[in-house]
């Protein structure tokens, strides 16, 4: 299964995302921000980093890049898209996901191993988890506080659109301790901590992040 990994100027985690796809049994395909060709991929990952230097707002410039002009309509038609960290910010700026990511409540950039609880196992990217499963994966962000209005928050909870919540502490002040969400269709997922850095015990705090990638790859084999 071909899974696209987008590289914007300032993207950092595209190599780890591609490696995670490979570990999961898929074929990673590099997608360039300046192209519009999705190269027949069956899913797309928007990796972490600082696209366009985080200028204006995180993800705001990336949202208007040529590759996003192809990804946005494809995602609206059901293409599975996973946005990690900066990718989550791009998905919110693109209005593929509701809400926005804002400055961490303590104003510090955080870098730590973070426990999260998987809440939704129905999405294209979380089917290989069990509901309530707790995993520890790296968290590294300065603007990871998930914010939305009360009505949106209520809808997210009622429609089971919360993918994962922080366990123990709420590191960045996200509403309802939200670490990740999905759209109503379940094909677009955004998550702040980094599952692609936790796919091998040698290089991460656990290998539990791999299930995000196997969820997609195995379901489509």
């Amino acid at each position: 299964m071909r899974v696209g990994v987008v590289t914007f100027p300032g993207t950092l985690d595209d190599h780890d995302a591609a490696r995670a796809v490979k570990y999961a049994g898929g074929e990673p395909v590099s997608l360039w921000h300046g192209d519009t060709d999705l190269k027949d991929v069956a899913g797309v990952i928007l990796p972490g980093g600082f696209s366009y230097g985080d200028y204006l707002r995180c993800g705001a410039i990336a949202r208007f890049s040529p590759i996003m002009s192809s990804i946005i309509p494809a995602a609206e038609n059901g293409l599975p898209v996973l946005g990690i960290c900066n990718g989550f910010q791009v998905l919110c700026e693109s209005h593929l996901l509701p809400g926005a990511l804002t400055r961490n409540v303590g104003l510090h950039f955080l870098c730590r191993d973070q426990e999260i609880e998987i809440v939704n196992t129905q999405s294209a990217w979380s089917g290989d988890f069990t509901r309530g499963q707790r995993i520890t994966i790296p968290l590294k962000n300065g603007e990871g506080s998930y914010q939305c209005d009360d009505k949106t928050l209520q809808e997210l909870e009622e429609n089971n659109q919360v993918i994962a919540r922080y366990v123990g502490i709420n590191p960045n002040g996200s509403r309802n301790a939200i670490a990740g969400i999905t759209n109503k269709q379940g094909n677009v997922v955004g998550i702040m901590p980094h599952p692609e850095h936790a796919i091998d015990a040698l290089t991460g705090p656990s290998a539990a992040g791999l299930a995000f990638f196997t969820s997609l790859v195995r379901a489509r084999v």
């Binding site: 804002t102 400055r103 961490n104 409540v105 506080s145 914010q147 209005d149």
Partner: peptide, 14 residues
Amino acid sequence: VLKDEILDPQGDAI
């Protein structure tokens, strides 16, 4: 400016 209901940790720090 951020909407009134959106948390503004920078404004709070100031």
